[in-house]
């Protein structure tokens, strides 16, 4: 896989061994040199305007006492960071991320399972692919509302359960444990499709001959998974793990829409949003966001150190 991309990247560049062409005029050379930069200009302009400039702003705000609306703001040094780190209760909400972390383990395993199954010849496989990927296309706010009805008293879940003769009087969003589990389940439903598609793409990029050869050698489906698919998708798998961890730490839409952070479902991002827009403490919310960014970066770094991204060699 890596091999082919490298070749593709090398090919267009004129090889030094090629018969010496007539010297290219200076202007043409200049234009040729500038072309890639011109192409890069548009994405860079967008990236800087909408990602890096806001981050720089946010970092700047974290050293001020800005309330989010007033034209006045004062430089307060590291005071906000000091306040943040001397209030341990602000970090307690990370326990909630544990539910989402546990859910994402389940999510990755399920996605891997479905991706493997559907990479083989299965009847209606395109239909099932669509079914699995569809939830990811729906807007998170819409999902929140759909599942509010799903979990409400006498809602979809209760109705479906009663079809099977199970009568529950459970308030699905009623206790911290139950509510967080329900919300994490919604999150699995939503993001399973994304993981699934990533895995499926990686699996399908494994050359078909390998399976054939393995079959001739008498390998069964499990052996094929263990010795061909698993090592073949390792980079994608580690990417998925990073995405899941950072996603679990920064859960927002689903709990914010469904419970607003009540009943022990408040996540770090919900707390930050409330600090900024409910209590007008942009000066305190910005360092909280910076800290979240640093935590995610740190987790990614640790994960990359533990599982280095080796070159995949299936040959």
């Amino acid at each position: 896989m890596t091999d082919t991309t490298e070749k593709a990247a090398v090919e267009p560049a004129p090889g030094p061994a090629a018969p010496a062409p007539a010297p290219v005029p200076r202007t043409t050379r200049l234009r040729r040199g500038a072309t890639p930069w011109l192409f890069l200009l548009a994405p860079h302009a967008l990236l800087i305007t909408f990602t890096y400039a806001p981050i720089a702003n946010m970092v700047a705000y974290s050293f001020t006492d800005w309330d989010g609306v007033s034209p006045e703001l004062h430089y307060t040094g590291a005071e906000n960071f000091a306040e943040l780190f001397t209030r341990p209760e602000l970090f307690e909400v990370f326990w909630v991320s544990g539910y989402y972390l546990a859910a994402s383990v389940f999510q990755i395993v399920a996605a891997l399972y479905f991706a493997t199954i559907l990479s083989f010849d299965v009847r209606f496989r395109n239909f099932f692919k669509g079914v699995l990927f569809f939830p990811y296309l729906i807007n998170g706010v819409a999902i929140g509302f759909v599942f509010l009805y799903f979990f409400q008293d006498g809602g979809t879940l209760d109705s479906v359960l009663s079809l099977f003769g199970v009568e529950t009087d459970r308030a699905w969003l009623g206790t911290p444990t139950s509510a967080n589990t329900s919300l994490a389940a919604v999150s699995v439903w939503r993001y399973l499709g994304l993981n699934f598609v990533l895995f499926l793409g990686a699996i399908q990029s494994i050359p078909g001959e390998l399976y054939e050869a393995a079959e001739l050698d008498g390998a069964n489906r499990w052996h094929q998974f263990r010795y061909i698919i698993a090592p073949g998708i390792k980079p994608v798998l580690s990417l998925t793990v990073i995405l899941s961890i950072s996603g679990s730490l920064s859960v927002f839409e689903i709990p914010y829409i469904m419970t607003g952070g009540a009943t022990g479902t408040e996540t770090f991002v919900i707390q930050t949003v409330k600090l900024a827009f409910q209590f007008n403490k942009t000066g305190l919310a910005s360092p909280a966001a910076v800290v979240l960014l640093l935590i995610v970066l740190a987790v990614t770094w640790v994960q990359r150190r533990l599982v280095p991204d080796d070159k995949v060699d299936l040959a």
Partner: peptide
């Protein structure tokens, strides 16, 4: 706002309701 109590927000009363119903 400074105290983050939020008497004009639902949050602290949601906590109160959770407390009262034993959640």
């Amino acid at each position: 706002n400074q105290s983050e109590v939020g008497i004009y927000q639902p949050d602290y009363r949601q906590d109160l309701v959770d407390l009262a119903r034993g959640a």
